[in-house]
Structure formats: structure tokens, C-alpha cells
């Protein structure tokens, strides 16, 4: 797999991050090294193998449908970077 600057920039966009030019150049090399190594996985024959999901058979875990959380609005909002009248403040999203 060949990594280039455009792919790095595409991955930045997908991850909602932005690298400096210097970080971008370094990432191109680092990701190339890592993916070249990861490509050794192609040597492994996985024909007819079902992809695994969970390590152990656990499915449809249920618990009683009852309210356990109390009113913790103020405690939760204490961590909000911006807060007003008991709500999170976000930039205007609809014109």
C-alpha cells in the first residue's frame, strides 16, 4: 500500500484533525512503515475463515428496564467548556 500526502490529508479529514506540514510529512513516512509491516498479514491464509467478533459467546445482554440515574445535570455540565441556562453551548449550526 502506497501512502501519499493526499491520503494523509484525507485521513485527517475523516478523523476531524489537522496536522502541521511537518507532522504531515512525518506521518506519511510513519504510516508507510506501519502499513508496509501490516501488509505481512496478506501472507496469512484466511480462506473460508469467518471474521471473529466477540471473544466469548455473549449476546443480547439485558438488564431490568428501570431508572437508576438521578438528576445529575449540574454535575455533568461542570465539565462543559461552555454552558448556559443548563445547556451546552454550541456554535450556530443552522443558518
Amino acid at each position: 500500500m502506497q501512502i501519499d500526502k493526499n491520503l494523509v490529508m484525507y485521513l485527517e479529514k475523516l478523523g476531524r484533525i489537522e496536522l502541521s506540514e511537518e507532522q504531515r510529512t512525518a506521518s506519511e513516512k510513519d504510516l508507510q512503515d506501519i502499513l508496509t509491516y501490516i501488509d505481512t498479514l496478506n501472507e496469512l491464509n484466511t480462506d473460508g475463515v469467518e471474521p471473529a467478533s466477540h471473544s466469548f459467546p455473549v449476546a443480547n445482554v439485558m438488564r431490568a428496564d428501570c431508572v437508576t440515574n438521578s438528576d445529575r445535570r449540574d454535575a455533568v455540565l461542570q465539565n462543559a467548556p461552555r454552558e448556559k441556562d443548563g445547556c451546552f453551548v454550541v456554535p450556530k449550526t443552522v443558518e
Binding site: 485521513l11 484533525i17 510513519d30 504510516l31
Partner: peptide
């Protein structure tokens, strides 16, 4: 985020 976290986010998205 620091650089290692960003690298793994990019690798994961890839």
C-alpha cells in the same frame, strides 16, 4: 490530542 493518538486515529480511519 498528541501525535501518537492522531496517528492511531488516522490508521483506524484508514
Amino acid at each position: 490530542f498528541g501525535m501518537e493518538v492522531k496517528r492511531r486515529i488516522m490508521l483506524g480511519n484508514f
